[in-house]
Design a protein around this nucleic acid. Structure first.
Lengths: 211, 211, 211, 211
DNA sequence: CATGAATGAGCATTCATTCAT
DNA sequence: AATGAATGAATGCTCATTCAT
């Protein structure tokens, strides 16, 4: 009776192991250049074995992407202390968000909008996966806005739009961060928060010059 | 005497044709999946002929990327009417920027941060190309800020950082725009401008514009 | 327990099969002109499969060469009846040597000094392989002389030099033999022996043997 | 009237230049690996131009081979002082022969029996060329024997056979010489002469030990 | 005559995937 | 369940050769 469950657990566990291994391989070798052998070696299996757990390499890629997106969605669903103002809640979320990016930066950059892999012809799969996962992340954040901000707390804007702009900004930040590797990304949270709420003009106390 | 010049022109012209053809092929088929034959067919040549103008497929990819980046830099260097306030100049630039993105959206999405292609190991080339071109675009915009805005007009922030955030936002916008194909991207310029200058809070009149 | 050994045997066996097949292909089509497909077809595999056993075509070429050289060295190491004079032992060796050449004539001619394949620039591999194998054969024969002949039985000459001249003569013979296909090569052994020991002058009975 | 002759001379001259250039290219790069571009560059032309003088690369290869063989035949046809014994004439010939080999050693090794290039199937061309040129050289030497030696001066043997053995020995010598680069090849003439006339046993004064 | 440009025909090699053991 | 072995399908790149200029 419990055997099948145990099996399932076992299988799920192995799948996770493979996904983790694939993540590492993708980061080091690149999504496209990593071969099934590379992934298998990283996971401690042979290439043939991977097919017991995934139907194709594409399925592994999608699982890795899905895993990454899921981590983001979890951040957005994590409970926040109730007695906080919206900007406070926002900052906490932002920090968590940036921390996750920091932790997964290599993988993110590897995938980032890697819709480039294949074309956008109907029927293609790669590109769609990347795009869809990016969108899921945005929609997740949009949901968070809906739940955590009164409409006028985000200027009456469409939450999805706001989420899109925010994710974009963070993306831009990530890009520069990797290039320069300057301290923790999460440290930038206040800056992004201010920019998010007041734009370049900043609010009252403007002056915080960066290098 | 003029012959060599004519030759050079001819060659440059052909290279451009090939770059254009490659762009189309990349968009339709994907950077990686497009074969030399695909590119050649699109350009009206045979695969072997391409090697008269480019040393390798990689060189073509880089030429396409470079061409795209160059177009952006040209936008940033285009002269603006002198008697305008910074926000006005900003909006004009933004519109031009968005128009270019609109025109090249397919190609942009194909490449965007396509550093995913290969890994980030030292010596890899693909990823570097993508990354570098993204950075060139940001630095170009940062330069524009330096030339067109007084420090306090961008809140005393590092121009590069500001550029990074802006390009990021635009990237986020592009992503959603492609997914939904809702009107012209350039129409969003005022929105981005407001967000850029005042954040979500908007300014005085918090016009509740839903999509 | 025995499994790994059996595997190894199996692999070694397959490698040998492929080497044999490659030999045939090289003879019929030429070392350079024979494609991996040709070799594979001859071996009953597909081209891709060959890469399970050899890293590259070059490695197959070298294996074929090595196999051929090994056969020669085995001839030189084969034991000889002890109670024979040096000339007698020499003749036996010569016969065996010629028989091997006869058996492998096609392959030999295909390879013979095929150092022509590539240039002699440092780092080239083809040419080196051919040359080295030729030299190994000569050195093997030189060793035989050292073990089987007292110095004055080879006129006090350097065994390596003597070996070189002998192998050269045999090579010349092989060349003519193939061109004319006149009886067994081994039948020429006495002639070569006489020439080897006494030169054209022949010994006592200068038997005027025309072809 | 003279124009056509001048043209012919011009053409013949250019052909020779190309053949020389090809020889150099073959030596450095290898017969097979040298491309038409390589040969052309060496000759100061473009690849296309070579086709004005030769119908194909194969024809160039054959011209180079032919040129080499012709040089050998010229040595065999060069007049010798009349009042000399056969061994004396032989030695002179041998020295000239070895000198030519020395001069052309690189090219010789490049081509040497490079029949390996292609297979021996009927209709193939490469292999035949190499083989045929080797044979021409042997037959040329055989002719020399016929003209310069009374039958019993070569032990009553078939001149062709004797020539074959001699060319073989020289080939063996060349092989080792290249490998070790020990002094002039022509210095070995006495040694080869003695071996040719008396075999290893040497004649009266046996002892000349080599290193 | 010389050549720049174009090309067809190839070819070694890679890799995701399958399947018998 | 794990895998060694086999393979079909691709693909970037080379090169001898042709031909218009």
């Amino acid at each position: 009776m419990k055997a099948p469950q145990r099996r399932e657990r076992e299988i799920a566990r192995t799948r996770e192991d493979i996904v983790e291994a694939a993540s590492r391989a993708f980061v080091q070798i690149g999504v496209h250049d990593a071969t099934m052998q590379d992934i298998a070696a990283e996971a401690g299996y042979t290439a043939a074995s991977l097919y017991t757990y995934f139907r194709s390499k594409q399925e592994i890629v999608e699982a890795v992407l899905d895993q990454l997106t899921t981590e983001f969605l979890q951040v957005f669903e994590q409970p926040l202390p109730g007695n906080l103002t919206f900007p406070q809640r926002f900052e906490i979320l932002l920090v968590r968000h940036l921390e996750l990016i920091e932790k997964r930066r290599a993988l993110m950059l590897t995938f980032h909008s890697a819709e480039a892999e294949s074309g956008h012809c109907p029927g293609d799969s790669h590109g769609q996966s990347f795009h869809q996962n990016f969108e899921r992340r945005i929609l997740g954040l949009a949901d968070w806005f809906k739940k955590n901000a009164k409409p006028d707390e985000i200027g009456g804007h469409d939450p999805e739009l706001v989420a899109r702009l925010l994710v974009g900004m963070v993306f831009g930040l990530l890009h520069g961060w990797v290039a320069k590797d300057q301290g923790s990304l999460a440290d930038r949270a206040p800056l992004v928060r201010d920019f998010f709420f007041h734009g370049v003009s900043g609010n009252s106390k403007a002056g915080a010059k960066k290098k």
